[in-house]
Design a protein around this nucleic acid. Structure first.
Lengths: 106, 106
DNA sequence: TATTTGTGAAACCGAATAGTTGCACATATA
DNA sequence: TATATGTGCAACTATTCGGTTTCACAAATA
């Protein structure tokens, strides 16, 4: 069973859950109210998110609050980092092209 | 058939392909040499990457060069953006906690 | 022209995925 | 104590996924 951050955010419902609890921890029931699927389906998504450590649980009586582990999100950011250099370079190259055109017009 | 960027980068082989062709366009055969799977499997991955516009093709005689559409990668970055504010805030909150502890010691 | 090379597409297969329904169990509450 | 509530887990199902094998076809080359 593959269980990494990238696989976790592949599902649109899971991405929505992540956004939903980003600012405020929520219980499975509260989360499920925001979606068309059953509470159990949401519970399964939460399990996957927990397994890859994107969310953590906080027991409060018989309620369980799920909260986003924002640090884990940085893992995606870290992977993107290697491309950031490239798209900045491409941007500079575009700059050069534009200035070449500009200079030609003079 | 769902076909978005997040689903595309969920597969580790596809992520490796993306990294591989990020700096230099390559043919399917050349790409396949870097992996344990068959050329056809790579071809299927390239099709998925093409369908969600993460890569584009450039025909060169009978060879087809696949190149990364770096701009599409920014879509992931854009999604991450909404969390960036949060993790910066969390960082600041940590700062506050630390300074509170520091002040208490005085 | 005949053959090799580079490629995509279709058919098939086993495993994983996302969902459902039904159940178990612990914690609140009457 | 009996009941209601919040939750996770197991079993089942249809669909998707990633891979392989086989084939078709166009472009390069002998």
């Amino acid at each position: 069973m593959r269980r990494d951050v990238f696989q976790a955010i592949a599902d649109p419902t899971r991405r929505a859950i992540i956004v939903l609890i980003a600012l405020q921890a929520m219980t499975p029931n509260a989360i499920a109210e925001h979606f068309d699927t059953s509470r159990q389906a949401v519970s399964k998504h939460l399990r996957i998110l927990t397994e890859c450590e994107l969310v953590s649980q906080k027991q409060e009586g018989r309620e369980i609050y799920y909260q986003l582990q924002i640090n884990k999100m940085k893992e995606i950011d870290k992977w993107l980092n290697q491309f950031r250099k490239i798209w900045e370079t491409r941007f500079n190259q575009l700059d050069e092209v534009l200035s070449t055109i500009k200079n030609r017009k003079k």
